[in-house]
Design a protein around this nucleic acid. Structure first.
Lengths: 194, 194, 194, 194
DNA sequence: TATGAATGAGTCTTCATTCAT
DNA sequence: AATGAATGAAGACTCATTCAT
């Protein structure tokens, strides 16, 4: 596949992403993609066999490109509390945004594609989040910012809460204040000496 | 609709439930139902206009029939801790069972059907769970079984964790020990004097 | 068929008439009739095999009941001109009324049911109209009210014009003034000595 | 749509025309068209969404291709009477032909599709006919061929008679002599000094 | 590489008609 | 006489996929 083709493939993935954002996974047809890309049906099949293959590619791009718990510009000397707050703020944005959001498509896709954990991006992301949070909490305990007898347990708890919020936002609709309240509860557990 | 047809409607709902369990919501066609019931296409339409209408009925039946946080036979004099344990055991069963489980169908349905909160069973169930847990925790604090400065916050936290576990079980696959570990973490937060 | 059944049959025909008025002929289903009558499907079939059979009955009733070029109360001593004016006024009402009008249903039915002329109500009505008008014109010539060298030809001409107006009203939509203008043209041909 | 598909579209329109001729409008299904064309269901939908869309195309083609009150080859020096006779002869052919005739389909279509007059081909055709006849009669009066104090009125009268004949031919069945007789009546009105 | 016409299987939906009660 | 549940055929429409160019 030449360089040109690589570009075209990327182009298709970008357009497809938008379609998945708008329609979820199961509602998307090859025609939707074709229309969004302005290419021919046959042309699309040269690159992707199915919407599932396309979605996998979209997800992969997503992961490599955008998954970055703490962005480059973040001050290295920032305290654990600052970093946690930053992380939660990002998560809130992610959870609440209706536009530009692959959550529904992702759920719909992974309800079907039962993958071995190694290859399952949902698992990967979960694990990474837990690891990152564990590190953060441990550092915070170290620095005296947090009280937390079981950093890994707390990290896992947070990760499930985030998952719960994420899916609830799509099924029940969540307001910003509901997310805030939940995050406040978590933070209080870390600072209060209980 | 005569008495006989009421029975038939129930029969259809039962068969349909099985189909939704097996295939989720979006994969189910009217033909799937027809085949599962052994009736004619036209016959099904006498009772239900769409798979969505059918699913709503399935859910309703589910709610009235089976949703019962604490069953009748539960000892009245049981302590709050006992009741919480019982509740979590039930939830674990619910979260882990692969068979007989409407979770995927429910998520798929409610990703599409964005309902006002009043009419959204997901909201209702969430609220009911939170209320019940709040009561339980408050009672436990009263009786000295639990340490919990903010019962409502803790209840809400648990509810989100449960939601997170429920959806994770469908997307990532969860082992019993993973659920147990999570529940243990929650329980420790209630008993440890932290 | 007992007396009661006769009444029921009449009732069905009346309700069906309304349905045909509203939906034409080809759009009407047995269910439409059943719903309009508030009876059972099986019940309807006891009386009529098809919408066509029903429509025939509706038409027959229509003919016997309402087709009456000059109504009873019309003064016997009325002049031919008066009678012609009266007839045209009735025709205008018939042509223009949107409600209560079987025209579309009738056309749709007779486009399909190519009947021998003897049994074709369209033919019958046409012939009766021509005969009546011929008589009227002849009488008018006799009494000096009309100038008309060929009453039968003129009557036939009028009958086709009426048919043309009737169908045009349904396909193109006609205003009252368009009908009036046409009728004026016809009348002037009878009174002007040309 | 490439050049080839334009040809195919034309082919479909031609086949469809035949189907409409045979079955009218409301009896025609997409399957009828598909069968007549020997193409696939999906293939037809590439070109037309519905039988209505197809019929509109058929009509349009009909209008542009065949509607030509006086054909090119007609002698320029022909008198008004000659031209009128020619026109009526054409109309008679049109009215009487059972084969190759879109009359029923056209009526059925326009009974449903109540269009604003500007866009209604029935209106357009009517108006064009009236205008043409008005011109013809006026010219005939000028040249002394016709006696006709109100050419526009007479033209309109003729147009309605033609409409009446056209629809009667489909509902009652008309013989050639019946049409001839009617045309004779009209012509006599123009030549007799009455 | 790329096009887009073409296919045909599959789903939804409606309707006339039957039949046990 | 009357009911209304049930059937299955038929029509509308869509979609993944192929293939000649």
């Amino acid at each position: 596949m030449g360089e040109k083709s690589v570009q075209k493939k990327q182009f298709i993935v970008e357009q497809a992403r938008q379609v998945f954002v708008e329609k979820g996974f199961k509602n998307v047809t090859m025609k939707d993609i074709v229309d969004a890309c302005g290419i021919s049906r046959g042309g699309l099949y040269l690159y992707f066999d199915s919407t599932a293959a396309l979605f996998r590619e979209v997800l992969e791009t997503e992961m490599t490109e955008t998954y970055d718990p703490l962005p480059d510009g973040f001050p290295d000397h920032a305290g654990a509390a600052d970093m946690l707050l930053f992380f939660l703020r990002e998560q809130k944005r992610e959870i609440l945004r209706r536009k530009n959001c692959l959550a529904v498509a992702t759920y719909e896709y992974f309800f079907e594609a039962k993958l071995p954990k190694r290859e399952n991006p949902m698992c990967t992301r979960f694990t990474e989040t837990v690891d990152m949070l564990t590190g953060l909490l441990a550092a915070g305990v170290e620095s005296g910012e947090f009280y937390c007898p079981d950093p890994e347990g707390a990290a896992r708890n947070m990760a499930y809460v985030l998952e719960g919020l994420r899916v609830s936002a799509q099924t029940m609709g969540l307001s910003e204040s509901m997310v805030d309240r939940e995050f406040m509860y978590i933070l209080q557990g870390l600072v209060y000496e209980e």
